[in-house]
Design a protein around this nucleic acid. Structure first.
Lengths: 191, 191, 191, 191
DNA sequence: CGCTAACCGAGACGGTACGTCCCGTCTTTAC
DNA sequence: GTAAAGACGGGACGTACCGTCTCGGTTAGCG
C-alpha cells in the first residue's frame, strides 16, 4: 500500500532548530551580517547540515522568514465590541509586532531584501496583504453598520492606517502608542 | 582675509567620485553585496584610496547615504495653487522618490540599517522629519484657510499621508499613483 | 589494536605539496620576496589552505627549511678507504650542498634568518652540528689510526675544515673545488 | 674658472642621516622587514627624501652596506710583536665584528642577499677579500720569518682561519673566543 | 638685504601582499 | 542513510608598505 516513507524524524527536528536559529540570527544581525556558521552553532548543528537542507544562505533566510507568516493570528473576536475597538486592536497588534522581537527586526530587513529580490518582494506583499485584509474587513463592517461614514473607502483607509503605524514606528522617534492610534483613527475614519 | 587652506584638491575629487559610486553600488546591490572593490572600480580609484577616507565599509555607506539628505528639495511653490494641490504634489514627490533610483533602493536599506544601528536610526528619523515638515506646514495652512476641516490635526494627518504612500510603495504590489493619492487625501483630509 | 586514526589523507598531501613549493620559492626568491600566493600557486592549492596549516609566512618557511634537515645523509662508507679520502668526500658533499639548489639558496637565508630569530638560530646550530659530527668522527678515527698527527684536535680541525669550505663557497668568487679541498686538508691535517 | 656649484649642504646631510638610519634598521630587522618608512622616521626625514636620493629600497640597502666597507680598518701595528700575535689579533677583530652590532647583523644579511643578487655578491666578495688580504700578508711574513712552517700556503691558511671564525660564530652555539682562536691557529699554522 | 631655485615635509594616489573570515563544496568517519 | 567535523578552493575584508606624485614652505647662496 502506501509506502510513504516517514522521512526520518531527525530531519524535521533539524529543520525546525535551524529555522528558529536563523530567525534569531536574522533579528540580531540583519540581512548583512547573517552568518551560516552562527546559525549552525545556535542550532547545535553541523554547518553541512544546513547546506543539506537549503542550497544557500538566501534560501534559508527566505524560508525562515516565511515561517513568520504562519505564526498564529492574534485572533480578534469580531463578535463583541464596536468596529472602532476592533480597528484599534488590530493596529495595536501591528504596532507591537513592529516594536517587539523578533518580527520587529525582520520586517525592516524584509523591506530591504524586497528591494533587491523579486521573490522576497512577493513574499512581503503577500504577508502584508494577509495582515491588512482583517483590517479592511473590519472597516467594511463598520461602514455597513453605520459606525463609520459611508464616504470611507475601506481599502484606502486600511492602507492609510497601516501606513501611519508603519511610518510612526520605523521613520520617527515616537512610538505608535495608544494615543497616536486614537488620533489616527479619528483622522482617517472620522470622529 | 580668510586664507582658508584648501587641503588638496585631489582629496575632494576622490571623495566625490567614491560617494557617487558608493550610492550606485548601494542602489544596485543593497547593504549586503556592497563591495568596496566594486565601488573603487566604479569610481576609477584605487582600493586603498577608499580606505584612506573611510575606515570601513559601513562608514562609507553611512556617509554616502547622508549625501542623499543634502540633495536639493524639489521646492514646491506654495504661493500658487490650493493647499490640496500642494499636498498632492508633495506626496507625489515622495512616491517618486520611493520608486526611482537611486533613492528608491536606499530608503529600504536605510530602514533596515536603522534596525541594527542607532546612528543610522537617528539619521533616518532626521531625514524623514525634514521631509515631512513641508507637508505638515502645508496642511496647517490649508486648515487655517478653511480649505480642510478644522478637526484635522496636521501632525497626525501628515503621518497618515506619508505612511500611506510608504506602505503602498513598499508593502503592496500596487503603485502610489495619482489615483491612489487622490483617494488617500480625500480619506484623510476630507472630501 | 592500534586504531591510530589517520586524520584525513588530504591534509598530509597538502602539507607535502606546500612544503615542497615553499622550498622552491625560497630557493628562487629568498626570504624577502617569498610570497604565500606564489607558494600556493606552485603547490596547486588555495591560498587559504596554506594559512590553514601554518599561521603565517615565517612559520611556513621555518617548517619547510626544517624538512631539509631530515633529508637522507649522503652516507659515506667508512669501512673502505683511508680517513683522508673520507674527509675529502664529506667536504666535497658539503661544498656541493652549498652550491646546488635547493639547499644552496637556503643556507644563506637560514644564516640570515638566524641573525634575527632565536628559533632559526637553534635550528641552524643543530643542523650544522649534525652535519659536522660525521666529519669529527672520521678525523678522530684517522688520528687513532696514526694517519693524522696526534697533535690534531678533531673538534677544532673539523671546524676549520667546514669553515674553510663555507668561506670559500659563500665569501669568495672561487669555488671549493677538489684542488682547494686537497690544499685545505693538507693545511689542517698535515701533509 | 670652474664655478662648480657646491651641491647644497642639505643634500649631504640628508644622505648621511638616512644611510646611518638604514644601517640601524638593517641591523635590527634584517633584509626582510626593512621598511623605508622606519628609516625615514629614524633619520627624521620625510619619506620622499629617501626616494629622492635612492630609486628603491634595494639601492638604499646596497649603498648603506657599502659604507660599512669604508669604515676605518682597526689597524694592526705590524711593526711590533710576532706574526702569530698579529694573526690572532686580526682574527679576534673578525670575531668581534661578527658578534657586535651593527656589522654582526649585516654580514648574515649580506650573505643571504648575495645568494639572490649578483651585485651584492660582488660586494661581499670584494669586502671579504679586502679584509682577508691583511691576514694573508701577515701569514706570508710569518712564513718568511721562519715563524710558521714553510709548508704553509698563506692563501689557503687564511681561508681556513677566516672560515673557522665564521663557522664558529655563525653556525655553532659557541663563541669564537680567544681559547678557540689559539687552538685553531695551532691547528692551521702549526704549534 | 631680497630673489630664486633647490630641497624639503607631508601625505594622497594606485598598487600588491598580507593574514582573517566566511562562503558553498567536498570528503571522511561515527552513529 | 543521516549527521558532525572539518579540509578544500575561492574571494572580500581591512591593514601595511611600496614607489610615484603633487603640494606649499623653507632655505641656501647669488645678485
Amino acid at each position: 500500500m502506501s509506502s510513504a516513507r516517514l522521512p526520518d524524524p531527525r530531519i524535521e527536528h533539524s529543520r525546525r532548530a535551524i529555522c528558529r536559529a536563523a530567525l534569531d540570527e536574522f533579528a540580531e544581525t540583519g540581512y548583512a551580517g547573517f552568518r551560516i556558521e552562527s546559525v549552525a552553532a545556535r542550532a547545535g548543528v553541523g554547518r553541512s547540515t544546513v547546506y543539506r537542507h537549503w542550497p544557500e544562505k538566501s534560501a534559508l533566510i527566505a524560508d525562515a522568514l516565511r515561517t513568520l507568516h504562519r505564526q498564529p493570528d492574534p485572533g480578534v473576536d469580531v463578535a463583541s465590541g464596536s468596529a472602532r475597538q476592533h480597528v484599534e486592536l488590530l493596529l495595536s497588534h501591528l504596532a507591537r509586532a513592529l516594536t517587539d522581537s523578533p518580527v520587529s527586526a525582520c520586517i525592516p530587513a524584509l523591506i530591504h531584501a524586497a528591494g533587491n529580490d523579486a521573490s522576497f518582494r512577493d513574499e512581503l506583499h503577500r504577508f502584508s496583504a494577509q495582515r491588512r485584509r482583517r483590517l479592511t474587513d473590519v472597516i467594511t463592517a463598520g461602514v455597513g453598520a453605520g459606525e463609520f461614514p459611508p464616504t470611507v473607502d475601506p481599502e484606502t483607509a486600511s492602507v492609510a492606517l497601516s501606513g501611519a503605524v508603519f511610518y510612526r514606528s520605523l521613520m520617527t522617534a515616537d512610538p505608535a502608542d495608544s494615543g497616536f492610534l486614537t488620533d489616527v483613527v479619528d483622522e482617517v475614519l472620522g470622529r
